[in-house]
Design a binder for these strands. Sequence first.
DNA 1: TCAAAATAGGACCATGCGAGTCCTATTTGG
DNA 2: CCAAATAGGACTCGCATGGTCCTATTTTGA
Lengths: 171, 171
Amino acid sequence: MLRISKLTDYAVVLATALSETESPRSVAQLALGTGIPAPTVSKVLKTLTREGIVVSQRGKFGGYRLARPADAISIAELIVAIEGPISVTECAESADGAACALHDDCGVRANWKKINRAVEAALEEISISDMSGPEEKLVPLLRSFRAAEENRKVVNADLTDALTEEVERYG
Amino acid sequence: MLRISKLTDYAVVLATALSETESPRSVAQLALGTGIPAPTVSKVLKTLTREGIVVSQRGKFGGYRLARPADAISIAELIVAIEGPISVTECAESADGAACALHDDCGVRANWKKINRAVEAALEEISISDMSGPEEKLVPLLRSFRAAEENRKVVNADLTDALTEEVERYG
DNA sequence: TCAAAATAGGACCATGCGAGTCCTATTTGG
DNA sequence: CCAAATAGGACTCGCATGGTCCTATTTTGA
Ligand code: SF4
Ligand code: SF4
């Protein structure tokens, strides 16, 4: 789990589709191209229009196109547009303690906040243009991933020691 | 959004609480200490027991304690235990295309998979012991975060050069 | 001027899932 | 045998998500 909503997923698919051409495309065209049902396409794009991520053109030969270059639209932005602010935990969303009953006396809150910001930052690095092309475009993400992989080896080494020690202690 | 479930959040709080002592603590004690309602504490810990993350002791003076050192229990593990496999998109969960109707003809699927693995890897780096203490403990995460921050500047300055260089080096 | 093609804005429902409670059985120690 | 604890589920309640559909508005061109 830890999932984005389906509509958000659709938003990414649609934005990626829109990044392929400059000219506006209608809901019908996009529905045909992506396989997403037309009413749903409409719903998503209306929201993205309100959020200033795509621009709409009414009337004949109208449709939707990206408001900015595909490099300047991040995954994080799309998530925020559809689902609201990125917040892995409840307390990460609202600054005040209204969301969670444990807020005032929670020892892990500060660290969750850091995690939240890290996830947010990572998703801000990924643009629509990164999604459209081959996977090699995901450079920033891959770099972080690799760093994490290397670090895991260190942790695993420590883990092995810890386990043997644990086995000795508890049988 | 992009939120973990509340029960998962509780799992982290409880695991962190358990990491403070070696001796088993009862549901009542933990409920008192954390502020989480006792029935909910019980539910979460029963799940964590099934998943082998904590061990239980029945009868008088029984309770729960961590099955492993706090360094060897990751946030990712807790999420998986409560919510199931980490999957930012539907298609990331099940390998086959059963989950999503667009699966077979989806251009962004491969890239989402990479993102999913990166998030997964990052959360595997963070242990319960990282959560309990001061924020300085979140070293791996901060490392990724810093890398992403630095990379953003590079991307903004000259995306093309960074890409070609990166592809040559790792590709 | 009118009709067609498109989006804008909601209203609407249905269903699944998360959160939380509670009951009964089982284990364990005194 | 009793008391204290967990094990395992069943159960309900509420609400967010997904999805559809209807009507108004804008735009273009015949
Ligand atoms: S305050 Fe603590 S328990 Fe509440 S949402 Fe934040 S991290 Fe979770
Ligand atoms: S296949 Fe494409 S549309 Fe379906 S869940 Fe995966 S990324 Fe989203």
